[in-house]
Design a protein around this nucleic acid. Structure first.
Length: 947
RNA sequence: GCCCGGAUGGCGCAACUGGCUGACGCGGUGGACUCAAAAUCCACUGCCCGCAAGGGCAUGCGGGUUCGAAUCCCGCUCCGGGCACCA
């Protein structure tokens, strides 16, 4: 008999039902009135801009989501709520704020979901977007809906293709240190002002003697987007190749966990390496956390050092080293098993006296090397994680000459040297490198220290700083000067050069899947890539019945892009300047990163059909100024998992657009903020399987049981597989959106992960009830504020202190503290005015302070207080300095650092007065002891030091 | 192994720039309302000793600087995230 009678609760209490009624009503009104429409300076969205003319522009951005079919759980909206609170706060503090939400809807996840549900990705994508829009709308997010774009919209990817052509149409001028249009390259080549870059012309003929096709080939090899036959990550299980960044350390696909194989394939590449230095250096002036900056720096992996040539009988071996100063300690060399010189270096027979351990038990070097190469390649296919770090290798039978002392040092093949980094060969310096030390110990090779270890050093290889020893003319020099000296010597004698090495590789940009942007590229009879003219954009993805990728578990299978099967689309008749010819279309598609590399620009001018963004709109919202030297969005909030991939790629595209003069900002995101994750408890039974979290009961003794069986508890991600999903809808139903928003903001600063605790949400609901009660009489529904009352001095002080600290929390994206201060104000008003009659200015300030956090309650109370206009643009309360200073202050009185008493003195009391009051307060403590020192910090504390 | 974070009551967290540790909320205890419960409201709530007044101990651990340290310095431990035979 649990039926409750309505008479129990006051008719006008803030209840879940009332909250839901208020929320849907205001959401409808916001939509109908276009409350969050933000005007641009120019173009179709410029209506109403004059009214904003005096306001400073702010661009608040969220990382846009994949429209997955699974729907939202309470962890998803954390960042969205955080940016919404901040953007609403900025609107109320006199800014013109652009804040929108789009959908990253191309790519593997969308396609895989479509395959699972056996529906065309266009259909599932659009249904998922509609569902997600509905869920996000229910959160009351103040987005300009007109600016919502989806990367799969034809009018969006038209410009993705256009930007690709801009990149394709550019080359990197290393002297000017920026990208320039290839037309300028061609003009310079025609005029004889410059020669083709190294490695771009293998005809051996000068530019002037090349025919049109040969010239195209030369130019194509300069471009920032180019086709190359390169070692790629071929993933037969996904039927596509993957970027380095998409392959895990143990050689599997990040998505789907399929094995990935290295093989050579002709693929589209972006010359992101040309930007390596700028991508590192420009981080300095961005407002990002050091964690993310470091991750980007480490990924790019710039290291300075030298290239050194070692002569051998066959050819010279070039190595890269960051420690050329240790050259005298190089006692052997190692080349990677895949190194092209391995064959030439392998001797016919073992030299006299070759130790048995160096031969791998084989009769000849050739047999040993071949066996080792085979083993190494097999090893790379297997789980590299399981491989122990023991060093293995075989002797090639040949020797190299250390240029600095003419020592003959043996050359080994070993897989601890990677072909993919540096030159694929090293000089081994066991005295100063632990890996070389390990190998030298295993193969009984000499170890020479060339840097004096610090005193007390008892390790093996010494990698620290110290004076050079056993190093001829370098002896006595510290590491830095020794490097300079040896590099000068190497250059002078023609044995090497100073150089900079990067871990970053060029970006593999093509995929053999259906659901991506088609490349606006065609191939003519000579096989050279040609740009589709801009007026043929968008190049639409042709409809396909069966878009299944050709997957395989055979590593020797070949990629077969689905678009290759649309034969009437792949062949096209075009006139590209030499009359109508037959061309073949590129059948690869772009990876899902493409759209996310520039979507933030499209939000600024979503309906512009002349340009991807009007320069004036871009400059207004993202242009550089004294706050942000590179320009970019004022805030970008998203998960830390995008620290390298998306953020690096997007910065690269943006920089190309900047170099070509299409945008005024040289960085896309000025202030970056990684929101934390909302975790939830996972309960497991004795077999370790998760049990439904909602069915677990907590015992009095702090243990948990599920259906009577004890279960363990840990924190984990929220997800179906862990059976701990809590949906926003459950919270809407129980308390409403405003409670959910407050709760998510209250549990901690935005960048911090925190566990979800459904029982704790009620605290925020109670807060809203109390605020409601400050304004509304629960029984009659009438407004119960006093229009003509004057706030007491105490109320004024509480109010203005609250305003000051609420603003501080808002600015710092720590609205948890703002909510605490609002709660304190509410508690004060509740006890100071138990029967209502809170002075109107105070009640209105409370509602305004709350509005960014709980906008529906904000709007409703604002309106009931008699305001016709939305609260969205109402001015946020400003603290009056006069009320921030108190007349009297309470000070702690310390004796020997411990608080022994308190005194209340005038705020401007003299030190003498404070001391006198302090002595009186702790007279018992001071009695009979000598006061050696008195420290008075005015308005803070007083401390006695006694003997 | 390297690079970033982090550790404060039963829980989430707060504490400006070295100056009252634990604001605010959850939970808990007691009370009001109710036939009763839910909801709501009020009070108390770091730990230990004590009837009390009061005292002692407390910000992961060990040192240090200081009149005074959650905060600064040195050395650790544990947890989270990232990278990793990168020469």
């Amino acid at each position: 008999m649990a039926e409750s009678t309505a008479a129990d609760t006051p008719a006008h209490r803030y209840s879940a039902a009332l909250a839901n009624e208020i929320e849907t009503r205001w959401q409808d009104r916001w939509e109908a009135e276009g409350t969050f429409h933000t005007p641009n300076p120019v173009g179709p969205l410029s209506e109403g801009f004059e009214a904003m003319a005096g306001k400073a522009p702010r661009y608040i951005l969220d990382m846009f989501p994949y429209p997955s079919g699974a729907g939202l759980h309470v962890g998803h909206p954390l960042g969205y709520i955080g940016t919404d609170v901040y953007a609403r706060y900025l609107r109320m503090t006199g800014h013109n704020v652009v804040h929108a939400m789009g959908y990253d809807s191309f790519g593997l996840p969308a396609e895989q979901y479509a395959l699972q549900t056996n529906t065309h990705p266009r259909v599932t994508t659009e249904a998922n977007i509609a569902n997600m829009r509905r869920q996000l709308r229910r959160l009351g997010l103040a987005h300009d809906a007109r600016r919502s774009v989806s990367t799969t919209d034809t009018e969006f990817y038209r410009w993705t293709q256009w930007i690709f052509l801009q990149i394709f149409g550019a080359w990197y001028d290393t002297e000017a240190d920026r990208a320039r249009p290839v037309e300028e390259l061609v003009a310079a080549l025609d005029a004889g002002e410059r020669q083709p870059d190294e490695g771009t012309n293998d005809t051996g003929k000068p530019w002037s003697e090349l025919d049109a096709s040969e010239r195209r080939a030369v130019v194509n090899r300069h471009r920032l987007a180019y086709l190359a036959d390169v070692p790629v990550n071929w993933c037969p299980g996904l039927g596509t190749v993957l970027a380095n960044e998409e392959v895990t350390a143990d050689g599997r696909s990040e998505r789907g966990n399929f094995p990935v194989y290295r093989r050579n394939l002709k693929q589209w590449m972006f010359r992101i390496t040309a930007y390596a230095d700028r991508l590192i250096d420009d981080l300095d002036q961005l407002d990002w956390t050091d964690a993310i900056k470091n991750q980007q720096r480490n990924w790019i992996g710039r290291s300075t050092g030298a290239r050194v040539r070692f002569a051998t009988d066959a050819d010279y071996i070039e190595v890269f080293t960051t420690r050329p100063d240790t050259l005298f300690g190089a006692t052997y060399m190692v080349v990677a098993p895949e190194h092209p010189l391995v064959g030439a270096l392998t001797a016919d027979e073992w030299p006299e006296g070759t130790p048995a351990a160096w031969t791998g038990g084989e009769p000849t070097p050739k047999a040993a090397v071949t066996a080792y190469q085979a083993a190494a390649s097999r090893r790379s296919e297997l789980d590299r994680q399981a491989a122990d770090k023991a060093k293995t290798g075989v002797f090639t039978g040949s020797y190299a000459t250390n240029p600095v002392n003419d020592e003959q040092i043996p050359v080994f093949v070993a897989d601890y040297v990677l072909m993919g980094y540096g030159t694929g060969a090293i000089m081994a310096v066991p005295g100063q490198d632990q890996r070389d030390w390990d190998f030298a110990e295993a193969y009984d090779l000499p170890i020479i220290r060339t840097v004096q270890p610090t005193e007390g050093f008892d390790g093996k290889a010494f990698t620290g700083e110290g004076p050079a020893i056993n190093s001829g003319f370098l002896d006595g020099l510290e590491v830095g000067p020794a490097k300079e000296a040896i590099i000068a010597w190497l250059v002078e004698h023609g044995h090497g050069t100073a150089t900079v090495q990067y871990k970053l590789r060029d970006w593999l940009f093509s995929r053999q899947r259906y659901w991506g942007e088609p490349f606006p590229i065609v191939f003519g009879a000579d096989g050279e890539a040609r740009a589709l003219p801009d007026d043929q954009l968008p190049l639409e993805l042709p409809p396909m019945e069966d878009f299944t990728p050709t997957t395989s578990d055979d590593e020797d299978s070949d990629p077969e892009p689905p678009l290759g099967r649309v034969t009437d689309w792949t062949t096209v008749e075009l006139d590209l300047g030499d009359g109508v010819e037959t061309f073949r279309r590129e059948v690869n598609t772009m990876p899902n990163w493409a759209g996310s590399c520039w979507y933030e620009l499209r939000y600024l001018d979503p309906t512009n059909d002349e340009r991807f963004v009007d320069p004036e709109n871009e400059r207004y919202w993202m242009g550089p100024d004294e706050r942000k030297p590179h320009g970019g969005t004022d805030l970008y909030v998203g998960g830390a998992e995008h620290a390298v991939l998306h953020l690096l790629y997007a910065r690269f595209w943006h920089k190309v657009l900047f170099d070509l003069g299409h945008v005024s900002s040289s960085e896309p995101f000025h202030r970056l903020f990684n929101q934390g994750m909302i975790q939830a408890h996972v309960y497991r039974d004795d077999r370790g399987f998760p049990v439904p979290a909602a069915e677990v009961v907590e015992g009095d003794d702090g243990t948990w049981t599920h259906q009577g069986q004890p279960v363990s508890r840990e924190l984990g991600k929220i997800g179906k597989s862990l059976k701990n999903v809590v949906t926003p809808d459950e919270i809407f139903e129980q308390y409403g959106t405003d409670t959910l928003r407050l709760y998510e903001m209250f549990t901690g600063p935005l960048d911090q992960s925190r566990p979800w605790d459904s029982t704790a949400t009620v605290g925020m609901f109670r807060l809203l009830q109390r605020i409601w009660r400050v304004v509304i009489d629960e029984d009659s529904g009438a407004v119960r504020v006093a229009d003509d009352a004057t706030p007491s001095d105490e109320t004024q002080r509480v109010l203005h202190r609250t305003i000051a600290s609420v603003r501080e929390g808002m600015e710092g994206l720590r609205s948890n503290t703002s909510i605490a201060r609002i709660t304190e104000l509410t508690n004060h008003l509740t006890s100071a005015y138990p029967d209502g009659g809170v002075p109107r200015p105070v009640a209105e300030a409370l509602v305004l302070l709350l509005a960014p956090l709980a906008p529906h309650v904000g709007e409703e109370l604002w309106s009931r207080l008699g305001h016709d206009e939305t609260i969205t643009y109402a001015p946020y309360p400003v603290a009056d300095e006069a009320w921030l200073v108190a007349d009297t202050v309470e000070l702690p009185v310390q004796v020997n650092g411990k608080v022994r008493g308190r005194i209340t003195v005038a705020a401007d009391a003299s030190e003498a007065d404070i001391e006198a009051a302090g002595r009186a307060a702790v007279a018992a403590q001071l009695d009979g002891r000598t006061v050696r020192k008195v420290i008075v910090v005015p308005a803070k504390m007083i401390s006695f030091v006694v003997g």
